[in-house]
């Protein structure tokens, strides 16, 4: 609702009023294209992703002890870090690492959440009860507290972080999917599909799950931002991605000591700004997707 209000003020009203007879997807896409903030967000994301893909791993990982802690210059646009590695190259490669953590974590979370939510909503009864109580219990813990506790037991590391974030954030998609299954499993068309002999898996996959795509898409986009932030927080504390692999988060670790924070700001400000930009951009895009696919949204009003 509040997002809708925001979009009403930002979307071009004349375009919205144009009469339409095309498909829902085309309509949603058009609404999305006219969401100014979402388009700005999309551009920022594309630029960050391309930059991250272009980063040179060699420059990011080769120390040069004669060029330590250099301030920004033509040769090193963002300066060098305490072992003489190029901060610009590390920011790009770090972005690749952080974004991969975000993506893989959200994929894990989506797979686990969707499967459990579908089972709970489709079969109901005891299974549903067990899964939903598990959701209740997991949701009693703030995400960051749970995450840090698991890291205390399993130890840090890039692959562990991906999986752990993914496995701890499944309750949200689980609830989304379960809700769709609960409301649709009794519908006539689902009964019909079952009558012509489709298996439970086919019914779930072909006829019920597509209805949950819209909210899942919004969850996935915002989830990537959450995961990138969690990685940044963990690695800032030194409990996430371990050096020498750069990530936006562990580059921020320089700022943990007040003296290095003050003396070499070029080492932590670029990854910090990239993280903030990425998270803001994803939120803009998420807002745009939400408005674009909401059937109650402003179109025709």
């Amino acid at each position: 609702m509040s997002q809708q209000n925001l979009s009403q003020t930002l979307v071009l009203p004349r375009e919205e009023r144009r009469a339409t007879s095309d498909s829902p997807t085309a309509r949603a896409l058009r609404r999305f294209r006219h969401h100014r903030l979402a388009m700005i967000g999309l551009v920022i994301i594309v630029v960050l992703v391309i930059a991250a893909l272009l980063g040179s791993e060699e420059a990011a990982l080769s120390p040069d002890l004669r060029a330590r802690n250099l301030p920004p210059s033509l040769e090193h646009p963002f300066g060098t870090d305490r072992t003489g590695r190029d901060v610009f190259a590390r920011t790009l490669v770090g972005g690749r690492v952080s974004l991969s953590v975000g993506l893989v974590a959200v994929l894990c979370s989506l797979v686990v959440g969707t499967v459990l939510g579908a089972i709970a909503g489709y079969y109901q009864g005891l299974v549903d009860n067990v899964i939903m109580r598990l959701v209740d219990i997991v949701m009693c813990f703030p995400l960051i507290v749970l995450l840090l506790s698991v890291v205390a037991i399993l130890g840090p590391g890039i692959y562990k972080i991906m999986i752990i974030i993914g496995l701890l954030t499944w309750p949200t998609p689980c609830r989304i999917v379960r809700g769709q299954f609960l409301s649709l499993r009794q519908k006539e068309y689902v009964e019909a599909a079952r009558c012509i002999g489709m298996t439970d898996l086919q019914v779930a996959w072909r006829h019920i799950l597509p209805n949950a795509m819209a909210p899942l898409l919004v969850y996935a986009s915002l989830g990537v931002a959450t995961a990138v932030l969690l990685e940044a927080g963990l690695s800032y504390l030194g409990l996430g991605v371990q050096p020498p692999t750069p990530s936006w988060g562990n580059m921020l670790n320089t700022a943990r000591s007040i003296s290095t924070m003050e003396q070499t700001p070029w080492q932590w400000i670029p990854p910090g700004i990239c993280t903030v930009l990425f998270v803001l951009a994803v939120n803009f895009v998420g807002d745009g997707i939400r408005d674009a696919i909401d059937p109650r949204a402003v179109e025709g009003k």
């Binding site: 940044a232 927080g233 800032y236 803001l280």
Partner: peptide, 11 residues
């Protein structure tokens, strides 16, 4: 709402 508070804190 969208800016992470720990990064705001660092800044």
């Amino acid at each position: 709402i969208s800016s992470p508070s720990f990064l705001l804190g660092l800044g």
